[in-house]
C-alpha cells in the first residue's frame, strides 16, 4: 500500500458516496446511466471472487465488500425507489459492444488460463470501458447536474491516482502488472475530455454544458 493507491481508493469510495448522496438528496437518478452502474456490479463481482479463497488484508476485505454492496445498492435504488426518474430512452449505449470484446480480450490476455484469472482480466478490461454508457448519456444530453459531475470527477481522480501508484510500485517493489496498467491508461484517457470541461466550467462555478 502506498499513498497514491490509498488516495485513489478513497476517491473511488467517495465517488460512490457522492452518487448515493445525489440520488437521495435530489430524489432522482436523472443523468445517471443504469448501464454503467450495472457494468460496475459485473466488474466488482467478477474481480472479487477471491474473497472466497484468498485473504489479502482487512482493508482489502472491507473495501471489496463495500464496492460490491454499494454498487448493488445503487442498482436497487435505480430499479425501485427512483425508477420513475430514470430515462432508458437516453441510456442507449449498446453494452454488447463492450462485453463481447472484453470477453475475447480476457481469454487472450490473462496471467493464467483459469476461470478466476480470466474473470479477473475480464473485470479489468470491462472496468476500463464501463464508464462509456455514462459518458455517452452525458454527450447526448449535453449537460449534467453539478453533483453528477463531482461523481465523475472523483471516479476520474481515482483512476488517475493509480498511475503514480504503478510507477511507485515499479521503483519500490519491482512490481509490474501489464494488464492493469494498459487497461488503466485507457480508462484514465476516457476522462480527459470530461475533465477539460469540469475544470474550465464546473470548478469556475458554471454549469456543466458541452459546447453545441
Amino acid at each position: 500500500m502506498n499513498l497514491f493507491r490509498f488516495l485513489g481508493d478513497t476517491a473511488h469510495l467517495a465517488s460512490i458516496l457522492v452518487l448515493i448522496h445525489k440520488m437521495h438528496t435530489t430524489k432522482s437518478c436523472r443523468g445517471i446511466s443504469f448501464k454503467t452502474q450495472a457494468l460496475y456490479v459485473a466488474v466488482f463481482v467478477t474481480r472479487y471472487l477471491d474473497l472466497f479463497y484468498r485473504w489479502v488484508s482487512l482493508y482489502n476485505f472491507f473495501m471489496k465488500l463495500f464496492f460490491i454492496g454499494s454498487s448493488c445498492y445503487i442498482l436497487f435504488l435505480m430499479k425501485t425507489k427512483f425508477r420513475p426518474t430514470q430515462d432508458p430512452a437516453i441510456d442507449t449505449f449498446r453494452i454488447e459492444y463492450l462485453l463481447g470484446p472484453c470477453t475475447v480480450i480476457a481469454l487472450i490476455f490473462n496471467y493464467k488460463f483459469s476461470p478466476t484469472e480470466i474473470l479477473w482480466s475480464f473485470s479489468i478490461f470491462l472496468e476500463s470501458v464501463a464508464i462509456l454508457p455514462q459518458l455517452f448519456l452525458l454527450q447526448r444530453t449535453g449537460e449534467a447536474e453539478t453533483i453528477t459531475t463531482h461523481y465523475l470527477a472523483a471516479l476520474g481522480i481515482y483512476r488517475a491516482l493509480y498511475i503514480p501508484n504503478w510507477i511507485y510500485r515499479y521503483f519500490t517493489e519491482g512490481v509490474v502488472d501489464p494488464i492493469a496498467i494498459t487497461a488503466g491508461l485507457v480508462q484514465t484517457g476516457l476522462y480527459i475530455d470530461f475533465f477539460y470541461v469540469y475544470v474550465t466550467k464546473v470548478l469556475q462555478g458554471q454549469k456543466f454544458e458541452l459546447p453545441a
Binding site: R47, D50, N60, F67, Y111, G174, V176, A180
Partner: peptide, 10 residues
C-alpha cells in the same frame, strides 16, 4: 516481475 499470483489492488 509480473504479478501472476494474487491481485492485491482493488
Amino acid at each position: 516481475e509480473t504479478s501472476t499470483e494474487g491481485h492485491d489492488e482493488l
